[in-house]
């Protein structure tokens, strides 16, 4: 039942629900930490060796092992790992030689910016397309949308990226090329949020904003196309499900307009499953699309993680994994909250 803030009971219930949420988030996050910690121990990469190098003597090696606290019992190591992470200390990356936390603060916003524009395109076009396709099932409109959605499944991302660059950048010149901004705009605005569009608005620098946008538009549109394909397909099938339900007939019997039948009666019940689909899709984009980030030289988390993996840079890998895991937890919990708000049947 939706929470009623006017009554005392409602407010109490709200706080109970809130405490529950905070607790489950904390617990899930602890589980995530346990997993990354465990991964850090089982991979065949010796963290001590990574620091001292393979020409160190046994004495140097042992001393470093003690200095890094790796001689202590696992449980103590885990506790101090949790303590470090909570304080934002993810260690130092051996490949960039910077703090992992600093690296992530730089690369994650780049991915976040692209993924967010991508999902806005995906939802903004995918949902209406799915609904329209279902409402006109079997028509040429439906067929067209289905073909488009199918393309989203079968066309490789790197190919679309390259063709897009060749067409819109090299031939037509409508958009800017790879990278987040042109080289001489780099570092012009202060990185407040790390999101270039937001930072340039905050700085009031419209030139940078326009430039960043023209760099962002193509890769974000390609990501958007992939999530659009998925979202439109799912929306269509959810809607077809609903349109076959008895209460849709009831609405028609009442003389309700077809627009209302579709957008109010059939659409309202699918908001909840749709949120899951959109959340999953968004989380997938936030993981960073390695293909797109590579083709567009996008300094995002997908690129960062790939480079870290290739260099066996464990701190960076774990840090990036942690961020991605946290994003999943965050999106999951957000859709949980939205469920409760939108579905009267959930308690």
């Amino acid at each position: 039942m939706p929470i009623d803030f006017r009554s005392r009971d409602g407010i109490l219930r709200f706080f109970r629900v809130l405490t529950g949420f905070v607790l489950t988030i904390a617990l899930t996050f602890l589980g995530l930490l346990a997993i990354t910690f465990f991964i850090g121990r089982v991979v065949p990469i010796d963290p001590v060796l990574a620091v001292v190098g393979d020409r160190a003597t046994q004495e140097q090696y042992d001393a470093m092992k003690i200095a890094m606290g790796l001689d202590r019992p696992l449980i103590l190591q885990f506790v101090s790992y949790v303590g470090d992470v909570v304080q934002g200390d993810l260690g130092r990356s051996v490949s960039t030689n910077r703090l992992v936390a600093e690296d992530l603060a730089r690369v994650f916003p780049a991915t976040l910016e692209m993924a967010t524009i991508g999902i806005i395109i995906g939802v903004g076009l995918g949902v209406p397309m799915g609904v329209t396709a279902a409402a006109h099932q079997g028509s040429w409109l439906d067929q067209g949308i289905r073909v488009l959605a199918l393309l989203g499944y079968s066309v490789p991302a790197f190919w679309l990226g390259l063709v897009g660059l060749a067409l819109f950048y090299a031939s037509l010149g409508w958009v800017s090329g790879p990278g987040r901004v042109d080289i001489f705009y780099d570092g012009v605005v202060d990185p407040v949020t790390g999101l270039l569009l937001v930072d340039s608005i905050l700085a009031g620098d419209w030139e940078v904003f326009r430039n960043a946008l023209s760099h962002l538009v193509l890769p974000a549109a390609i990501l958007g196309f992939f999530s659009l394909a998925y979202i439109a397909r799912m929306t269509r099938s959810f809607m077809l499900d609903q349109l076959g339900q008895e209460y849709i007939t009831t609405a028609r019997v009442k003389g309700v307009s077809e627009w209302r039948v579709i957008w109010v009666h059939a659409f309202a019940p699918i908001r909840v499953p749709l949120i899951t689909v959109i959340g999953l899709s968004y989380a997938g984009l936030l993981e960073g699309s390695v293909m797109i980030e590579t083709v567009f030289s996008w300094p995002g988390i997908g690129n960062y993680l790939t480079v870290a993996l290739l260099n066996a840079d464990m701190n960076a890998v774990l840090g990036a994994t942690l961020i991605i895991g946290a994003v999943f937890i965050g999106i999951n919990k957000t859709s949980d909250v939205l469920y409760r708000v939108l579905d009267p049947r959930s308690t």
Binding site: Q245, Y247, T249, T250, A268, P269, L342, D343, P344
Partner: peptide, 8 residues
């Protein structure tokens, strides 16, 4: 089945 589940 004939009443909309998400409308009062």
């Amino acid at each position: 089945f004939s009443l909309n589940p998400v409308m009062t």
